[in-house]
């Protein structure tokens, strides 16, 4: 590697470790080693230190947090719809499974009742979770709707 090429790579380097070829040039070329070290130490001095300066934002931010709504894990609408779709497709598919077709006529109601119960529970759980987790959203939409109606009436 020529010195010219080395310096070009040095200037183009991201905030990352230099590649092996550059390290090799530094070992064999004292001039470039000095240039690279001078640049690095200048950048290091310029870089922000890890300790905080005169202002400490921690208490100021902490004082605000009780007054804002706390973040909550949320499942995106896409994931909700995806899960609902999978549930629907599997309910449609199950009666078509060859195992189902063999077992169902043999066992009759002894088989069909528990299967229906399980599927019913799944659908209820899904719908229940969906409604509970979207209560805020529903009430917001309802309020917005009422607002629009009131606006129209006025």
């Amino acid at each position: 590697m020529t010195c010219e090429r080395f310096l070009e790579l040095l200037d183009g380097l991201d905030n990352e470790k230099p590649p092996a070829a550059m390290a090799a040039h530094v070992r064999s070329c004292p001039a470039c080693a000095r240039r690279a070290a001078a640049l690095q130490s200048a950048v290091d001095l310029y870089r922000l230190p890890d300790i905080a300066g005169s202002s400490n934002m921690v208490p100021r931010v902490a004082a605000m947090l009780p007054f804002v709504s706390a973040p909550r894990r949320s499942v995106s609408m896409r994931n909700w719809l995806g899960a609902g779709f999978v549930l629907l497709v599997s309910m449609i598919m199950i009666p078509g499974l060859s195992a189902f077709m063999v077992i169902a006529p043999d066992l009759g109601a002894d088989f069909m009742v528990p299967v229906s119960l399980v599927l019913g529970c799944l659908v209820t759980a899904y719908s229940g979770l969906f409604v509970v987790s979207h209560l805020d959203d529903f009430s917001r939409r309802l309020k917005a709707y009422q607002g629009r109606q009131a606006h129209k009436a006025a």
């Binding site: 922000l48 230190p49 905080a52 300066g53 202002s55 400490n56 934002m57 921690v58 931010v61 902490a62």
Partner: peptide, 8 residues
Amino acid sequence: VRRYQRRV
């Protein structure tokens, strides 16, 4: 907050 206050 402590970690990123300098940058912000």
